[in-house]
């Protein structure tokens, strides 16, 4: 299943936040959206998943999601969004309980995603007992349990310290190698974008417009930390963004 964004424009009251966004997210591709803070990238992601309605324009699903898919467009949030009163397995169970699947199958799915995210021994832990990285792993397991067609990730690593971020980044790469998931990944971290993105969309400062789309053809497995080519791309992205970021930094915040 592909996604296609057509002429998306949005404003909160008088403030224009997004202007004429056109973008395709192809199956098996990770699309990274980067931009200075307040450029509307999180808003755009909420629109892609149907949590917010654009003032004009539309988000189209091209083709049908796979038949066994329970929740085609599935988010991973920056703040993990785990229920503190449920254990790890309870949090995963939560998103399965509303679907018509038997208890045995549900149990099977939970065991499977916990194994895939190496969380099996933390099944009955409460979120407060887990580190930030583990919490985000639980959120990833929860997202995988509904067999999404597209993963929508809203700065999933931004709340973590840099070592944990490295580890989780490797996990995301490994997972992609194995499962070839489709994803839209919003971040303000350029290193994350060049490490994960097949396509990097640079948004300008408010109102957010597509400034440039950079495609990286190097396979994810070859993208190591000290890669000259990636560093060149990252530098280029930074040059594109620097002035915008500086201007955005000086702006008064008047909404959200």
């Amino acid at each position: 299943m592909d996604l296609s964004l057509r002429n998306i424009t949005h404003h909160y009251d008088e403030v224009e936040v997004l202007r004429d966004i056109n973008l395709d997210i192809k199956q098996g591709q990770i699309v990274c959206i980067i931009g200075p803070s307040g450029c509307g990238k999180s808003t755009l992601l909420r629109m892609i998943g149907g949590l917010e309605r654009p003032a004009s324009g539309e988000v189209l699903q091209l083709g049908d999601p796979p038949a066994d898919c329970l929740n085609p467009l599935t988010y991973i949030f920056q703040d993990f969004a785990l229920l503190p009163w449920r254990t790890v397995e309870g949090n995963i169970g939560l998103v399965l309980e509303d679907h018509k699947i038997g208890a045995a199958e549900r149990e099977e799915i939970i065991a499977d995603v916990l194994a895939r995210t190496k969380l099996s021994e933390f099944r009955s832990a409460y979120p407060r007992q887990l580190s930030g990285g583990m919490k985000q792993r639980v959120a990833i397991a929860r997202a995988l349990s509904v067999r999404p067609a597209v993963l929508l990730m809203d700065e999933p690593l931004s709340a973590l310290d840099s070592q944990t971020r490295e580890l989780l980044m490797d996990d995301l790469v490994d997972l992609w190698e194995k499962e070839n998931y489709t994803a839209c990944y919003v971040t303000h971290n350029l290193a994350e974008a060049v490490r994960l993105g097949h396509k990097i969309v640079v948004l300008s400062r408010r109102p957010g417009e597509i400034h440039e789309i950079v495609e990286i053809n190097m396979p994810l497995s070859e993208r190591t930390n000290e890669n000259a080519e990636l560093e060149k791309i990252q530098k280029r992205l930074w040059n594109l963004m620097r002035d915008e970021a500086r201007a955005a930094d000086m702006e008064l915040v008047n909404e959200r």
Binding site: L70, T74, Y75, F77, L83, L94
Partner: peptide, 18 residues
């Protein structure tokens, strides 16, 4: 109640009652 949790519920397609 944390709005983020409610949005999470919506994003996973939970019913209003749930």
């Amino acid at each position: 109640v944390d709005r983020g949790l409610i949005r999470m519920g919506q994003s996973f397609g939970l019913s209003r009652m749930s």
